[in-house]
């Protein structure tokens, strides 16, 4: 913070001038419309950007989903009704992506479901364990908390590159495996290992965030409850089972839903780490949206928009779930 104050002599006069000018312009305006209507003025910039770059696109997305062709501008695009959705859902058998017209879409969906199940359970288990450990009486708690949190700050590209380097064929992991008598493996080229590492790396990168939330939840449990339970003769296991767990449940739900919402949208880390491969083994739904609309030779914006609506509806359901659970836990 002090570092920034070096810039003060430079920025302060400019800011001051700016603020004075704004004030000059605004004061007569305020006199005309009255104090309470000034609210409109203050909310306006945010509302404008929100309207142009969020609200309007949200509405426009419905239109895109119902048009075909490869042109970007809506007036050049033929209206095809639910054609894109027909394409997406044109499947001989919904359980086998190969029988679908858009097999990549379904592969993406199945991969996403698999990824979400493994990744979210990994995050819940490991962040809970870490939070319990960090909540104990340990030396250097601040340091260890930072250790587990640090990867959260790294960019997905950086995270992917760190692990790509560790996992490469002549990499350090294979060297370690060989020391212990194992065989070196092409970790990211074997379909099952690739899925494992994609899950592992994202748990590695994100668990610190959820650990912090759970830690805050643990620390908000009143110590009197443990005193009371020890008077009642409860052992450690009973303490955990009947005091910690029930009181941590609301926080656990928050963690679960937040992790779900994030996992469904997973893209960048995997894109850099495996590119969706080997084959399409780690290609998730968002990568399908991106590839279909933006990085393939023929840019099918309509299909991409339709697929993104499937993602949007999933997120909506998860959010409503969170609101419901949130209301329940705040009532309890």
């Amino acid at each position: 913070m002090r570092l920034l104050s070096i810039l003060d002599p430079l920025t302060r006069p400019i800011l001051l001038l700016l603020v004075t000018v704004v004030d000059r312009v605004l004061t007569p305006f305020q006199r005309r419309i009255g104090i309470d209507k000034m609210g409109y003025f203050f909310v306006l910039p945010n509302l404008l950007i929100f309207g142009i770059f969020v609200l309007f696109p949200m509405l426009l997305n419905f239109y895109y989903a119902m048009t075909g062709g490869t042109k970007l501008f809506p007036e050049d695009r033929p209206f095809i009704g639910l054609g894109n959705f027909d394409n997406l859902f044109d499947c001989g058998d919904f359980l086998s992506p190969n029988s679908c017209q858009e097999d990549l879409f379904w592969r993406g969906i199945f991969n996403t479901i698999q990824f979400v199940i493994f990744q979210v359970s990994g995050i819940v288990v490991f962040s809970l364990m870490t939070a319990l450990v960090l909540n104990r009486k340990i030396v250097a708690r601040g340091f260890f908390r930072s250790v587990f949190f640090y990867p959260v700050l790294l960019s997905p590209v950086v995270v992917a590159l760190i692990w790509k380097w560790v996992l490469q064929h002549e990499g350090v992991l294979n060297a370690i495996v060989e020391i212990f008598g194992g065989e070196s493996t092409r970790w990211l080229l074997d379909p099952n290992w690739a899925l494992f590492w994609v899950v592992f790396v994202s748990v590695w990168a994100l668990m610190g965030f959820y650990t912090l939330i759970l830690l805050a939840g643990l620390q908000s449990i009143p110590p009197e409850l443990y005193e009371a339970s020890s008077i009642d003769g409860a052992n450690n296991w009973q303490d955990f089972r009947f005091v910690t767990m029930p009181l941590l449940m609301p926080t656990m739900f928050v963690v679960l839903v937040l992790a779900l919402i994030r996992a469904v949208q997973m893209f960048d880390q995997i894109y850099v780490l495996t590119g969706g491969g080997p084959g399409t083994r780690t290609q998730l739904l968002v990568q399908y949206i991106y590839t279909t609309g933006f990085s393939s030779q023929i840019q099918l914006f309509g299909l991409s928009a339709a697929a993104s609506m499937v993602l949007g509806i999933t997120l909506l359901i998860l959010t409503l779930l969170q609101l419901r659970l949130g209301n329940q836990s705040s009532l309890a």
Partner: peptide
């Protein structure tokens, strides 16, 4: 992610 295409427009 949900509105990539229209924002791009």
């Amino acid at each position: 992610t949900v509105i990539l295409v229209p924002v791009f427009l």
